[in-house]
């Protein structure tokens, strides 16, 4: 499948430069999810795309895939835990409803507004990105192991 040695130096250099921009774009989509089209799902998928791009360009021999996979799955679990915890805090503040929007709403159209919705967006974005990257890495590790 993926060439184990990676691609040519030109591809490596260009992917180094571009993946940073893709990563930044993903963060932009996540943070502005309550103002512009996008949000946690789209931004998380873009973030995972940046990492997948790097792995495809650099091949699998320079990376410690096992460790990356474990870290990605741990990050995913932590993100979903934070999401549920933030929802649970709503049980103790205000009108005591699960998924209560307990922070001040602010002005519509400002970056810092809409209460907890941006925080939910960030948690879901990290979760989706880490999940997709974990699935991809699991496939790559499987392919490496059966090709040995």
């Amino acid at each position: 499948m993926i060439t184990m040695k990676g691609m040519s130096p030109i591809v490596k250099k260009v992917s180094q430069l571009i993946s940073a921009i893709i990563f930044l774009y993903g963060i932009y989509i996540i943070v502005h999810g309550h103002l512009t089209p996008g949000g946690g799902f789209a931004g998380g998928a873009v973030l995972s795309g940046a990492f997948i791009f790097l792995v495809l360009a650099f091949g699998t021999d320079v990376l410690n895939l096992r460790r990356e996979e474990e870290e990605a799955s741990v990050i995913e679990g932590l993100a979903i835990l934070i999401f549920v915890l933030m929802a649970t805090i709503g049980l103790f503040i205000g009108i005591r409803v699960f998924f209560n929007n307990y922070l001040p709403k602010g002005q519509i159209g400002e970056l810092i507004s809409a209460g907890v919705i941006p925080l939910y967006n960030i948690a879901v974005g990290i979760e989706v990105g880490a999940a997709l990257f974990t699935i991809f890495l699991a496939l790559v590790i499987y392919k490496e192991e059966i090709s040995k």
Binding site: G39, F41, V128, I135, A138, L139, Y142, I146
Partner: peptide, 24 residues
């Protein structure tokens, strides 16, 4: 539909994992 798209991706990757395991 936004949630359904991501769920579709999850189920599709799960099916792919089962398929590749069956191929082995």
């Amino acid at each position: 539909v936004l949630t359904a798209i991501v769920i579709g991706l999850a189920t599709k990757s799960m099916l792919m994992a089962i398929a590749i395991r069956l191929y082995k």
